[in-house]
Design a protein around this nucleic acid. Structure first.
Length: 234
DNA sequence: GCGACAG
DNA sequence: ATCTTGTCGC
């Protein structure tokens, strides 16, 4: 792929963006009328990715609007630099929606990151919209396993600080790792994430965006008769 | 140097 | 993340 920038340059950008990240602001439920979720899927072999965004009315959690889009991959997957790979595609689909979410849940970490600025924080700063990182696995830090009931949580500690929480969003399933992205504090992030869950491990906005991004990839594969990353047929 | 390592 | 088939449990 034609790489947009180097990891060194990306690191410098993160350093410059870091002081704009705000995780000290409580966000009440009344502050959120619309909540969005974003995710990206990839097509093996070709340098293409499919992003999706789904917006829900909060706290009713009724689907309001969804958009998808495809983009070329211009940055490799490097742990700690996911934003430089996925943010461009995500920003593109967010620009397509008519509704204005007051909060966006991102598939990945927020400040529970080596340098305190994961993809959720990165997007929050660029959009100037509160964001929360919801990841399926840990990138940095340590945590104690919470009890198995819905809503149980325990802090993620990294560099002697509480940067997030391991949250049980559904009874008996693996926890998800929640961390503030930008414009919201940890307690609010955990509370709001839980309020977005409808019986599944992942909060609905992210779950639906994930599904939609996959559908967009599949339709692309079908449209171009792609399989195993190669071309079959015309 | 070695192991870890979001999606 | 992607690809892939069956299997286990509510």
């Amino acid at each position: 792929m034609r790489v947009s920038i180097s990891v060194q340059e990306a690191k410098k950008i993160q350093r410059e963006m870091l002081d704009r990240v705000d995780v000290g602001r409580p966000l009440s439920d009344e502050d959120v009328r619309m909540v969005g979720g974003v995710d990206v899927s990839y097509l093996k072999g070709v340098e293409k990715m499919f992003a999706a965004v789904c917006v829900f009315k909060f706290p009713e959690m009724e689907l309001v609007e969804c958009k998808t889009g495809s983009s070329k991959v211009t940055f490799p997957y490097v742990p700690g630099y996911l934003a430089f790979r996925e943010a461009p595609a995500i920003l593109a689909v967010i620009n397509k929606i008519k509704s204005k979410p007051d909060l966006i849940l991102v598939d990945g970490h927020g400040v529970a990151h080596p340098r305190g600025i994961g993809i959720a924080s990165h997007l929050g700063v660029l959009l100037n919209i509160p964001t929360i990182g919801v990841a399926k696995s840990l990138l940095v830090g340590e945590y104690a396993e919470p009890s198995c009931e819905v809503g149980a949580s325990s802090p993620i500690v990294y560099d002697q600080k509480e940067v997030g929480a391991a949250l049980r969003t559904r009874k008996g399933v693996k926890v998800v790792f929640v961390s503030p992205g930008h414009g919201v504090d940890l307690d609010s992030a955990v509370r709001l994430t839980l309020a977005c869950c409808l019986g599944y491990r992942l909060p609905e906005p992210v779950r639906r965006a994930h599904r939609l991004a996959n559908e967009a990839r599949v339709s692309y594969q079908k449209k171009h008769a792609l399989r195993y990353g190669g071309t079959l047929g015309s």
